[in-house]
Computed example of a mutant assay.
Amino acid sequence: MATSASLGEPSRRDFLFIATGAVGAVGVASVIWPLIDQMNPDASTLAAASTEVDISNIAVGQIVTVKWRGKPIFVRHRTPKEIEAARAVPLDQLRDPATDASRVEKPEWLVVIGICTHLGCVPLGHQGAYDGWFCPCHGSVYDTSGRIRQGPAPYNLVVPIYKFTSATKITIG
């Protein structure tokens, strides 16, 4: 026959068992937490995750190079003539077809990663037959929208993730 103590009322032993388990769980968590926390990226990595560019001092027609994640980023303040020329290119003339509108958030601002898609060189701005970029290493020529037009590069200059945070600031990354 079962006694009333064994059926439903907690005993001192039940309390000690639960308390010991709770203290053990807190102890394990306090040991494991530093091991998990050390896997988070350090402050310098988080700082490199995005960069803010002040575009208020970039003149029309000027290209500014900034660094993001160790890569050069070209920010080009395009002229109306450059925008018109970029929009007028038929897609069937492009090796890596992309409309100008798909590569820019605002027509007057082009933001691209400044690394040639052929072998990773850094192209020179305001160069080449299309007044875009010219890679002197192997002769790749990009237009004012960063699209490959001549040479061995297989793809357009890459457009990074960016957004306009104000009328004068762009956040890249």
Rank of each mutant, 00 (worst) to 15 (best):
V75G: 01
R76F: 13
K81V: 15
I63G: 00
W33S: 12
R95W: 12
A47Q: 12
P34F: 12
V66D: 04
V112W: 01
Q150P: 01
L119N: 11
H77G: 09
P80H: 12
V141S: 07
I18S: 09
V141K: 01
A2I: 14
Q127F: 06
Y162G: 04
P10N: 11
A43K: 15
R95S: 14
A47T: 09
W133I: 02
V111Q: 02
Y155L: 14
A86M: 03
I58C: 09
R76M: 10
Q93R: 13
I36Q: 07
R147A: 06
G132F: 00
L7C: 07
G146L: 02
R147V: 06
V66A: 04
C116P: 05
R95A: 14
W109N: 03
L157Y: 00
I32V: 15
T20M: 03
V23W: 09
Q150L: 15
A47C: 00
I83S: 03
L35V: 11
F164W: 12
V122N: 15
C116E: 09
T65C: 06
A49L: 07
I170V: 12
S4Q: 12
G21R: 14
G146Q: 04
T3I: 12
A22I: 15
G70V: 04
A153W: 05
K71F: 13
V26R: 06
W109L: 01
P160C: 04
T144K: 01
Q38K: 15
I83D: 05
L110K: 10
R149W: 13
T65V: 14
V122I: 15
V26P: 01
S11Q: 14
G120C: 13
V141I: 12
F17M: 10
K163M: 08
